[in-house]
Amino acid sequence: MDRVITAGVAVVGVPVVLLGYLLLGERILERLPGRLQSWFRPYFWALPAISFATIFMVYPTINTAILSFYSRDSTEFVGFANYKYFFTFPDTLLSLRNSLFWLVFFTVFSVGLGLIVAILVDRVGYESIAKIAIFLPVPISAVAASIIWKFMFDYQPPGAVQTGTLNATLGTVGFQPVAWLSNKATNNAALIFVGIWSFTGFCMVIISASLKAISSEVLEAARMDGASEVRIVRLIVTPLLWPTITVVGTTAIITALKVFDIVYVLTAGAYDTSVIAVQMFSQLTSGGHFGRAAAVGVILFLAIVPLLVVNVRRFQQQEEMR
Protein backbone atom coordinates (compact mmCIF):
# COMPACT_ATOMS: atom_id res chain seq x y z
CA MET A 1 0.00 0.00 0.00
CA ASP A 2 2.85 2.32 0.92
CA ARG A 3 4.34 1.72 -2.49
CA VAL A 4 1.07 2.56 -4.21
CA ILE A 5 0.95 5.88 -2.38
CA THR A 6 4.58 6.59 -3.21
CA ALA A 7 3.94 5.77 -6.87
CA GLY A 8 0.86 7.98 -6.89
CA VAL A 9 2.75 10.84 -5.32
CA ALA A 10 5.50 10.41 -7.89
CA VAL A 11 3.08 10.42 -10.82
CA VAL A 12 1.06 13.38 -9.60
CA GLY A 13 3.72 15.08 -7.55
CA VAL A 14 6.53 15.33 -10.09
CA PRO A 15 4.46 17.20 -12.71
CA VAL A 16 3.00 19.46 -10.04
CA VAL A 17 6.44 20.28 -8.68
CA LEU A 18 7.68 20.97 -12.20
CA LEU A 19 4.73 23.21 -12.89
CA GLY A 20 5.28 24.99 -9.59
CA TYR A 21 8.94 25.49 -10.51
CA LEU A 22 8.04 27.08 -13.83
CA LEU A 23 5.32 29.19 -12.32
CA LEU A 24 7.32 30.54 -9.41
CA GLY A 25 10.42 30.93 -11.59
CA GLU A 26 8.50 32.94 -14.19
CA ARG A 27 7.17 35.23 -11.48
CA ILE A 28 10.69 35.89 -10.30
CA LEU A 29 12.00 36.30 -13.85
CA GLU A 30 9.32 38.87 -14.65
CA ARG A 31 10.69 41.17 -12.01
CA LEU A 32 14.20 41.09 -13.43
CA PRO A 33 15.38 43.83 -15.81
CA GLY A 34 14.68 43.05 -19.48
CA ARG A 35 18.15 42.09 -20.67
CA LEU A 36 18.88 39.84 -17.75
CA GLN A 37 15.46 38.26 -18.25
CA SER A 38 16.07 37.28 -21.86
CA TRP A 39 19.53 36.02 -21.00
CA PHE A 40 18.35 33.92 -18.11
CA ARG A 41 15.07 32.52 -19.41
CA PRO A 42 16.37 29.81 -21.81
CA TYR A 43 18.60 28.37 -19.08
CA PHE A 44 15.74 28.45 -16.64
CA TRP A 45 13.49 26.48 -19.00
CA ALA A 46 16.19 24.04 -20.05
CA LEU A 47 17.32 23.31 -16.51
CA PRO A 48 14.71 20.61 -15.65
CA ALA A 49 15.48 18.67 -18.82
CA ILE A 50 19.21 19.00 -18.30
CA SER A 51 18.97 17.85 -14.70
CA PHE A 52 16.85 14.85 -15.68
CA ALA A 53 19.39 13.89 -18.32
CA THR A 54 22.19 14.39 -15.83
CA ILE A 55 20.58 12.28 -13.13
CA PHE A 56 19.40 9.46 -15.38
CA MET A 57 22.05 9.39 -18.13
CA VAL A 58 25.20 11.33 -17.41
CA TYR A 59 25.55 10.26 -13.80
CA PRO A 60 25.02 6.52 -14.48
CA THR A 61 27.49 6.69 -17.37
CA ILE A 62 30.17 8.31 -15.25
CA ASN A 63 29.44 6.00 -12.34
CA THR A 64 29.68 2.95 -14.60
CA ALA A 65 33.04 4.16 -15.82
CA ILE A 66 34.19 4.58 -12.22
CA LEU A 67 32.85 1.16 -11.17
CA SER A 68 34.76 -0.46 -14.01
CA PHE A 69 37.97 0.28 -12.10
CA TYR A 70 36.74 -1.43 -8.97
CA SER A 71 36.55 -5.01 -7.73
CA ARG A 72 33.65 -7.48 -7.86
CA ASP A 73 31.64 -5.74 -5.13
CA SER A 74 32.94 -2.23 -5.95
CA THR A 75 34.89 -1.89 -2.72
CA GLU A 76 38.48 -2.07 -3.90
CA PHE A 77 40.25 -0.10 -6.58
CA VAL A 78 41.80 -2.51 -9.08
CA GLY A 79 43.02 -0.20 -11.84
CA PHE A 80 42.72 -1.65 -15.31
CA ALA A 81 42.34 -5.27 -14.12
CA ASN A 82 38.77 -5.57 -15.43
CA TYR A 83 39.83 -4.27 -18.84
CA LYS A 84 42.82 -6.56 -18.85
CA TYR A 85 40.46 -9.42 -18.06
CA PHE A 86 38.24 -8.46 -20.96
CA PHE A 87 41.05 -8.33 -23.49
CA THR A 88 42.95 -11.42 -22.35
CA PHE A 89 40.30 -13.93 -21.36
CA PRO A 90 39.32 -16.55 -23.96
CA ASP A 91 35.57 -16.25 -23.29
CA THR A 92 35.40 -12.49 -23.52
CA LEU A 93 37.67 -12.47 -26.56
CA LEU A 94 35.31 -14.93 -28.15
CA SER A 95 32.36 -12.64 -27.52
CA LEU A 96 34.37 -9.81 -29.00
CA ARG A 97 35.03 -11.93 -32.09
CA ASN A 98 31.34 -12.79 -32.36
CA SER A 99 30.36 -9.15 -32.03
CA LEU A 100 32.71 -8.39 -34.92
CA PHE A 101 30.98 -11.13 -36.93
CA TRP A 102 27.68 -9.48 -36.13
CA LEU A 103 29.03 -6.06 -37.00
CA VAL A 104 30.26 -7.15 -40.43
CA PHE A 105 27.74 -9.72 -41.59
CA PHE A 106 24.62 -8.32 -39.97
CA THR A 107 25.32 -4.81 -41.26
CA VAL A 108 26.41 -5.79 -44.76
CA PHE A 109 23.55 -8.20 -45.33
CA SER A 110 20.70 -6.28 -43.76
CA VAL A 111 21.66 -2.98 -45.41
CA GLY A 112 22.65 -4.67 -48.68
CA LEU A 113 19.48 -6.73 -48.88
CA GLY A 114 17.41 -3.73 -47.80
CA LEU A 115 18.93 -1.70 -50.64
CA ILE A 116 18.45 -4.41 -53.24
CA VAL A 117 14.88 -5.10 -52.20
CA ALA A 118 14.05 -1.38 -52.11
CA ILE A 119 15.38 -0.90 -55.66
CA LEU A 120 13.72 -4.04 -57.00
CA VAL A 121 10.26 -3.49 -55.51
CA ASP A 122 10.36 0.07 -56.81
CA ARG A 123 10.08 -1.40 -60.29
CA VAL A 124 7.20 -3.85 -59.86
CA GLY A 125 3.43 -3.51 -59.58
CA TYR A 126 3.02 -5.50 -56.37
CA GLU A 127 5.39 -3.24 -54.46
CA SER A 128 3.31 -2.79 -51.33
CA ILE A 129 2.67 -6.52 -50.86
CA ALA A 130 6.34 -7.33 -51.32
CA LYS A 131 7.28 -4.60 -48.88
CA ILE A 132 4.79 -5.81 -46.29
CA ALA A 133 6.23 -9.30 -46.54
CA ILE A 134 9.76 -8.06 -45.94
CA PHE A 135 8.68 -5.61 -43.27
CA LEU A 136 6.56 -8.12 -41.35
CA PRO A 137 9.35 -9.33 -39.01
CA VAL A 138 10.20 -5.76 -37.93
CA PRO A 139 7.31 -5.20 -35.51
CA ILE A 140 7.75 -8.65 -33.96
CA SER A 141 9.64 -8.31 -30.71
CA ALA A 142 13.10 -9.84 -30.94
CA VAL A 143 12.28 -12.26 -28.15
CA ALA A 144 9.21 -13.57 -29.96
CA ALA A 145 11.13 -13.75 -33.23
CA SER A 146 13.85 -15.75 -31.51
CA ILE A 147 11.35 -18.18 -30.09
CA ILE A 148 9.87 -18.66 -33.56
CA TRP A 149 13.37 -19.42 -34.86
CA LYS A 150 14.10 -21.72 -31.96
CA PHE A 151 11.37 -23.95 -33.33
CA MET A 152 12.69 -23.55 -36.85
CA PHE A 153 16.19 -24.61 -35.78
CA ASP A 154 15.09 -27.52 -33.57
CA TYR A 155 17.20 -30.66 -33.86
CA GLN A 156 16.54 -34.36 -33.29
CA PRO A 157 19.06 -37.14 -33.87
CA PRO A 158 19.26 -38.65 -37.37
CA GLY A 159 16.54 -41.25 -37.75
CA ALA A 160 14.14 -39.65 -35.27
CA VAL A 161 11.22 -37.53 -36.41
CA GLN A 162 12.51 -34.02 -37.06
CA THR A 163 10.42 -31.44 -35.22
CA GLY A 164 12.34 -28.40 -36.47
CA THR A 165 11.10 -26.90 -39.73
CA LEU A 166 14.56 -26.55 -41.24
CA ASN A 167 15.70 -30.06 -40.38
CA ALA A 168 12.39 -31.55 -41.50
CA THR A 169 12.92 -29.82 -44.85
CA LEU A 170 16.49 -31.08 -45.06
CA GLY A 171 15.23 -34.57 -44.25
CA THR A 172 12.65 -34.62 -47.05
CA VAL A 173 15.34 -33.83 -49.60
CA GLY A 174 17.57 -36.54 -48.17
CA PHE A 175 20.10 -34.67 -46.01
CA GLN A 176 21.19 -35.37 -42.45
CA PRO A 177 19.78 -33.00 -39.82
CA VAL A 178 22.03 -30.17 -38.65
CA ALA A 179 22.25 -29.11 -35.00
CA TRP A 180 22.02 -25.45 -36.05
CA LEU A 181 22.34 -23.87 -32.64
CA SER A 182 24.85 -26.15 -30.94
CA ASN A 183 27.12 -26.86 -33.90
CA LYS A 184 29.86 -24.26 -33.80
CA ALA A 185 30.12 -24.21 -37.59
CA THR A 186 26.55 -23.02 -38.03
CA ASN A 187 25.32 -21.41 -34.82
CA ASN A 188 26.73 -17.90 -35.20
CA ALA A 189 25.55 -17.77 -38.79
CA ALA A 190 22.11 -18.96 -37.69
CA LEU A 191 21.85 -16.25 -35.03
CA ILE A 192 23.05 -13.50 -37.34
CA PHE A 193 20.56 -14.72 -39.93
CA VAL A 194 17.72 -14.21 -37.46
CA GLY A 195 19.02 -10.69 -36.88
CA ILE A 196 19.15 -9.98 -40.61
CA TRP A 197 15.67 -11.42 -41.05
CA SER A 198 14.27 -9.04 -38.48
CA PHE A 199 16.22 -5.93 -39.53
CA THR A 200 16.21 -6.00 -43.34
CA GLY A 201 12.63 -4.71 -43.42
CA PHE A 202 13.65 -1.64 -41.45
CA CYS A 203 16.55 -0.87 -43.81
CA MET A 204 14.32 -1.43 -46.82
CA VAL A 205 11.63 1.01 -45.65
CA ILE A 206 14.07 3.82 -44.92
CA ILE A 207 16.01 3.34 -48.15
CA SER A 208 12.82 2.98 -50.14
CA ALA A 209 11.49 6.28 -48.78
CA SER A 210 14.63 8.06 -49.81
CA LEU A 211 14.52 6.32 -53.18
CA LYS A 212 11.09 7.82 -53.82
CA ALA A 213 12.60 11.25 -53.24
CA ILE A 214 14.98 10.88 -56.18
CA SER A 215 13.57 12.96 -58.97
CA SER A 216 12.26 10.86 -61.84
CA GLU A 217 13.58 13.46 -64.27
CA VAL A 218 17.15 12.56 -63.43
CA LEU A 219 16.47 8.90 -64.10
CA GLU A 220 14.59 9.60 -67.31
CA ALA A 221 17.39 11.80 -68.54
CA ALA A 222 19.83 8.98 -67.90
CA ARG A 223 17.63 6.51 -69.75
CA MET A 224 17.37 8.91 -72.69
CA ASP A 225 21.13 9.03 -72.81
CA GLY A 226 21.05 5.26 -73.16
CA ALA A 227 22.28 4.21 -69.71
CA SER A 228 21.44 0.64 -68.73
CA GLU A 229 19.40 0.00 -65.56
CA VAL A 230 22.41 -1.52 -63.79
CA ARG A 231 24.45 1.53 -64.67
CA ILE A 232 21.70 3.83 -63.41
CA VAL A 233 21.55 2.01 -60.09
CA ARG A 234 25.31 2.00 -59.75
CA LEU A 235 26.11 5.55 -60.86
CA ILE A 236 22.99 7.55 -60.05
CA VAL A 237 20.70 5.87 -57.54
CA THR A 238 23.32 4.55 -55.14
CA PRO A 239 25.29 7.81 -54.84
CA LEU A 240 22.07 9.76 -54.29
CA LEU A 241 21.06 7.25 -51.62
CA TRP A 242 24.47 7.35 -49.98
CA PRO A 243 23.56 9.67 -47.05
CA THR A 244 20.59 7.44 -46.25
CA ILE A 245 22.66 4.28 -46.53
CA THR A 246 25.21 5.75 -44.13
CA VAL A 247 22.53 6.51 -41.58
CA VAL A 248 20.89 3.10 -41.95
CA GLY A 249 24.33 1.48 -41.92
CA THR A 250 25.45 3.16 -38.71
CA THR A 251 22.11 2.28 -37.11
CA ALA A 252 22.68 -1.32 -38.19
CA ILE A 253 26.19 -1.29 -36.74
CA ILE A 254 24.89 0.04 -33.43
CA THR A 255 22.16 -2.61 -33.44
CA ALA A 256 24.77 -5.27 -34.18
CA LEU A 257 27.04 -4.12 -31.39
CA LYS A 258 24.34 -4.07 -28.77
CA VAL A 259 22.49 -7.21 -29.92
CA PHE A 260 21.36 -9.16 -26.89
CA ASP A 261 17.87 -10.61 -27.08
CA ILE A 262 18.35 -12.88 -30.11
CA VAL A 263 21.48 -14.46 -28.69
CA TYR A 264 20.12 -14.66 -25.18
CA VAL A 265 16.91 -16.41 -26.18
CA LEU A 266 18.35 -18.80 -28.75
CA THR A 267 21.58 -19.94 -27.12
CA ALA A 268 22.17 -17.65 -24.13
CA GLY A 269 25.74 -17.41 -25.32
CA ALA A 270 26.39 -21.14 -25.00
CA TYR A 271 28.39 -23.02 -27.62
CA ASP A 272 30.65 -20.03 -28.39
CA THR A 273 27.87 -17.67 -29.47
CA SER A 274 28.22 -15.03 -26.77
CA VAL A 275 28.42 -11.37 -27.78
CA ILE A 276 29.52 -8.29 -25.86
CA ALA A 277 26.08 -7.40 -24.52
CA VAL A 278 25.39 -10.96 -23.38
CA GLN A 279 28.82 -10.96 -21.76
CA MET A 280 27.95 -7.77 -19.88
CA PHE A 281 24.66 -9.25 -18.71
CA SER A 282 26.14 -12.52 -17.53
CA GLN A 283 29.04 -10.79 -15.78
CA LEU A 284 26.46 -8.79 -13.88
CA THR A 285 23.84 -11.45 -13.13
CA SER A 286 25.37 -14.91 -13.08
CA GLY A 287 28.90 -13.61 -12.57
CA GLY A 288 27.91 -11.06 -9.94
CA HIS A 289 30.98 -9.03 -10.90
CA PHE A 290 30.00 -5.39 -11.05
CA GLY A 291 33.47 -4.24 -12.04
CA ARG A 292 33.79 -6.50 -15.06
CA ALA A 293 30.23 -5.85 -16.18
CA ALA A 294 30.88 -2.13 -15.97
CA ALA A 295 34.11 -2.52 -17.94
CA VAL A 296 32.26 -4.39 -20.69
CA GLY A 297 29.64 -1.64 -20.68
CA VAL A 298 32.29 1.05 -21.03
CA ILE A 299 33.96 -0.80 -23.91
CA LEU A 300 30.61 -1.16 -25.67
CA PHE A 301 29.91 2.52 -25.06
CA LEU A 302 33.29 3.58 -26.43
CA ALA A 303 32.76 1.41 -29.51
CA ILE A 304 29.40 3.01 -30.22
CA VAL A 305 30.28 6.67 -29.58
CA PRO A 306 32.17 7.24 -32.88
CA LEU A 307 29.20 5.84 -34.77
CA LEU A 308 26.86 8.16 -32.94
CA VAL A 309 29.10 11.07 -33.87
CA VAL A 310 29.01 10.02 -37.53
CA ASN A 311 25.25 9.72 -37.39
CA VAL A 312 24.72 13.11 -35.77
CA ARG A 313 27.12 14.76 -38.26
CA ARG A 314 25.14 13.23 -41.13
CA PHE A 315 21.93 14.63 -39.77
CA GLN A 316 23.50 18.05 -39.40
CA GLN A 317 24.80 17.96 -42.96
CA GLN A 318 21.38 17.04 -44.23
CA GLU A 319 19.84 19.84 -42.21
CA GLU A 320 22.32 22.29 -43.73
CA MET A 321 21.52 21.12 -47.25
CA ARG A 322 17.87 21.99 -46.79
Binding site: Y155, Q156, P157, A179, S182, N183, Y271
Partner: peptide, 9 residues
Protein backbone atom coordinates in the same frame (compact mmCIF):
# COMPACT_ATOMS: atom_id res chain seq x y z
CA UNK B 1 21.50 -41.70 -27.61
CA UNK B 2 22.06 -39.65 -30.80
CA UNK B 3 25.72 -38.98 -30.02
CA UNK B 4 27.22 -35.79 -28.54
CA UNK B 5 25.42 -33.56 -31.07
CA UNK B 6 22.06 -34.65 -29.72
CA UNK B 7 23.23 -34.34 -26.13
CA UNK B 8 24.18 -30.71 -26.70
CA UNK B 9 21.04 -29.83 -28.64
Amino acid sequence: YGGPNTVLA
